[in-house]
Simulated scan of single mutants.
Amino acid sequence: MKIANGIEALDLTVNMMGRQSALHPTLIWDDNEVILVDTGIPGQLEKIRKAVTSAGASFDKLNKVILTHQDIDHIGSLPEILKGAGRKIEVLAHEEDKPYIEGDKPLIKMNPERMAKMLESLPEEQRQKIQTMFGARRSAKVDTTITDGEVLPYCGGMTVIFTPGHTPGHISLYHQKSKTLIAGDALVAADGALLPPSPRTTLDMTTALQSIKKFTKYDIDTVICYHGGVFKENVNKRLAELADTQ
């Protein structure tokens, strides 16, 4: 979905845990930069390439990937993107999640015990397929670490908002020019509503809820949730309501 000139929420269809759903990486671009925020699950390089082209940008000019956090559905296709590009792409992420993205530590949510619990209700064939897809070691070098409040001077300016809780190093981004919040998994959209992150997939729900309060400092017209897509209805009011309940 197009948000404004040079910013679009991509739509990647996936089948996870026996359910078909969509993931929404964000594409931001201008004459100098083509930036992808998050990279889908493993094996989605061609879907991403097509989505970038359909948005009106050039995959061949992609020069930066910003990761909101370490989860496999956000970093899954990163190694394929870096390999398939045939040129240098700068990878940016928060310091807290860097060792997980780079493979120095195992992904927090992919340990065998947690995986077994997540998959226990699925048929054996589906369990094996998901374990094969997600079980392989996938890592990539983080070239640049980004910090809370840092303004990235790309595409009209993007402010980094450190929003831990869902993972220790989760970040969100505020695109100043379009007044768009790229929330990652700090928020979700469902049935026309803007909601806190899912407790089932959030490591520290108390911290995650506190992180929502940071969004009230910004004038936001649009929220892009990685799960659920775009929310545009009285955004600042809704964020204030969510912050007040914590």
Rank of each mutant, 00 (worst) to 15 (best):
E80G: 05
T68H: 12
H175N: 10
L23S: 04
T39Y: 02
E46C: 00
K141S: 06
T159H: 00
E125W: 10
P123M: 06
Y154W: 15
K213R: 13
P99S: 12
T144R: 15
I171V: 15
V235S: 07
I3S: 10
K2C: 11
N234G: 03
P123R: 08
T132Y: 12
T13P: 06
F162H: 14
L187R: 09
L242V: 05
L242E: 05
K177Q: 15
Q210W: 02
V37H: 11
T206H: 07
L92C: 12
T207S: 02
Q210F: 00
E113H: 05
T163C: 05
K129S: 12
Q176G: 09
A208L: 01
F134I: 13
T159W: 00
G76D: 05
K129E: 14
V142G: 02
L62M: 13
P79L: 09
M115N: 00
I146H: 01
I41K: 03
H227R: 06
A55V: 08
D73I: 09
P99Y: 10
L195T: 06
V160A: 01
I212Y: 06
L12P: 03
Q210D: 12
E33N: 15
T206K: 12
L181K: 08
V151G: 00
D104N: 14
T163Y: 03
V235M: 10
M115V: 12
V37S: 07
A193W: 12
S54I: 07
S139P: 00
R200C: 00
T13Q: 13
Y218R: 06
I75L: 06
V14E: 10
D143F: 04
V160K: 01
D71G: 00
E96D: 14
M1I: 12
K105C: 01
I130A: 12
Q131A: 13
E124H: 07
D11I: 03
A116P: 00
G103A: 04
T167I: 09
A186N: 12
T216I: 07
P112I: 01
V34R: 09
D185A: 04
I182P: 03
T53H: 13
E33R: 15
K2L: 14
P164D: 08
I130M: 15
E46D: 14
K237A: 11
A93C: 08
S54M: 12
K83L: 11
D71I: 11
T68F: 01
K213Y: 01
F162Y: 15
M1Q: 14
G184L: 02
K237H: 13
T147S: 15
A9K: 04
A240H: 10
N236T: 01
R200H: 11
M133Q: 14
V151L: 08
R200G: 03
A240C: 02
G43M: 05
V34N: 09
G157I: 06
N236R: 07
G184H: 02
L82F: 08
E46S: 13
K117Q: 07
S211F: 04
H24T: 07
G169T: 07
D104V: 02
